[in-house]
Design a protein around this nucleic acid. Structure first.
Length: 265
DNA sequence: CGGGCCTCCTGGTAGC
DNA sequence: TGCTACCAGGAGGCCC
């Protein structure tokens, strides 16, 4: 579930809670959460005694910068992961898998119920993006709407699966791809080839606006605008625009919620 | 290159 | 009531 707007909120929480604090202990409570490239020992060695200096996001990946000169702490949240800043031991959320304990007894916990997230250490930010083959962040400032549309235009297949493909554009998952299609009044099975280039520009323009609004709402702990699909994305959900029942179908193997009235085939 | 299907993993729930 | 089977979902792998 954590997609770009959620990870943007996590970034803000880490900046508010952890930046400036010094790591005293690193507790790996479930090592299945660690990527093969790290061990509890190597992570502890790198982080112990270092200060948290900031964080960076690319798509659904969150990088934490510390004094350690040899890289970044990387968090990916799978579907159920989230960070939690804890004022005391009792604040640790259920399914906590990793805890960075700071010298003032506060801590940063990484919780992940379904263990689909990963924690690792990356020596170089740009190299990691390159090696993963990640596309530009969906909210990157240095890529225009037309450039983004051009990238989509070069692909085949459904618009939904292409929007969710992290190698095309990074940050959009199942939930927000449904939101973008809903707000653009496009059926989830719409193929890239069904659209004109200008339509794709509009998808990119709207998509960015939606993600930005989502990120802002999350960061400020505000609900999403009432006409957004996200809160209604469940069985028995109704369309927030026309009040008709939403339908659920499979598109590229994933459940897609849509309004058959507002999103014509 | 894209789609379909499988795996990882847990916990909530639909259905028998 | 109590069990099982399925499903959610991000990512990656494998095959067609």
């Amino acid at each position: 579930m954590p997609e770009l707007p959620d990870v943007e909120k996590f970034k803000k929480e880490i900046e508010e809670g952890a930046v400036g604090r010094q790591v005293e202990h690193v507790h790996v409570e479930d090592k299945r959460i660690l990527d093969d490239s790290v061990t509890p020992q190597s992570l502890g060695k790198r982080l112990k005694g270092s200060q948290i200096n900031g964080s960076r996001r690319h798509g659904k990946f969150l990088f934490t910068e510390t004094d350690a000169q040899d890289g970044w702490l990387l968090m990916h949240f799978g579907m159920t992961g989230y960070p939690a800043f804890c004022a005391s031991e009792q604040d640790k959320p259920p399914h906590t898998r990793l805890v960075l304990e700071f010298s003032d007894n506060t801590s940063l916990a990484y919780a992940c119920q379904r263990l689909l997230g990963k924690i690792s250490w990356v020596p170089d930010f740009a190299e990691f993006l390159e090696a993963k083959g990640l596309g530009p962040d969906a909210l990157a400032e240095d890529i225009s709407v037309r450039d983004m549309a051009t990238v989509l235009w070069s692909r085949k297949g459904t618009l939904k699966s292409t929007l969710m493909n992290q190698e095309v554009v990074a940050g959009i998952g199942n939930e927000w791809s449904d939101e973008i299609l809903f707000q653009c009044r496009l059926h989830p099975k719409t193929e890239i080839g069904d659209l004109k280039f200008e339509d794709l520009c509009e998808v990119c323009r709207s998509g960015r606006r939606l993600l930005r609004t989502g990120a802002r709402a999350n960061c400020n702990r505000h609900p999403l605008p009432p006409h957004y699909l996200t809160a209604h994305r469940h069985s028995d959900g109704i369309c927030p625009k026309c009040q008709k029942e939403l339908e659920k179908i499979k598109v590229a193997g994933r459940p897609a919620y849509y309004c058959p009235n507002c999103q014509n085939p």
